[in-house]
């Protein structure tokens, strides 16, 4: 599969991929907002027909100026690979590209993400393949009342 930076033309494909695959969905303006604000850190995988089969949608959190306790860091809002395109290591490739861009362009000190407590496959990917660690548990983070694990990976 073709793995590359997400372009404006990909936004509809990313939205469709997300809707097909994940329970947390977003309207177009949300996807647009990320692309318009941080155009360098979201990536896609596409098949030979140009269909988006996987993506990572990321943002940068900059702490308020008076808050010295926080650092600039990246956050993965959504990452997904269509079930039929698994076992190609796409999620890992997408994540690594995004992390590299977060660190080199924005000097992000770490990257964070939320994952459903019950999503064992995703947790295994983040922890075992990508080296994330659980930073805390966020109670009832999801709309249906499920807890989220807040995971982190240092980029420095």
């Amino acid at each position: 599969m073709n793995v590359r930076l997400a372009k404006v033309d990909d936004l509809m494909g990313m939205q469709a991929c997300n809707l097909q695959n994940l329970p947390e969905n977003y309207m177009m303006k949300f996807w647009m907002y990320h692309a318009m604000t941080w155009p360098q850190i979201s990536f896609v995988a596409e098949d030979h027909k140009g269909r988006i089969v996987g993506y990572v949608l990321a943002k940068i959190d900059e702490p308020a100026e008076d808050d010295k306790t926080q650092e600039i860091h990246g956050h993965v809002n959504s990452i997904s690979v269509l079930r039929s395109y698994r076992r190609l290591g796409l999620a890992k490739k997408l994540m690594l590209l995004s992390q590299e861009a977060m660190a080199s362009i924005y000097k992000a000190s770490y990257v964070s993400l939320h994952v459903r407590k019950s999503n064992k496959a995703a947790i295994a990917l983040y922890r075992d393949t990508l080296g994330f660690e659980v930073a805390k548990v966020e109670k009832k983070y999801y709309g249906d009342g499920e807890d989220a694990l807040s995971m982190r990976l240092a980029l420095k």
Partner: peptide, 23 residues
Amino acid sequence: DQFDFHGYNLRKFTISIYLKLLK
């Protein structure tokens, strides 16, 4: 959806991606 970005992207200086949005 593009409406707000006519002002927003100028404030953020993300021009290249904005021109692509318009196209």
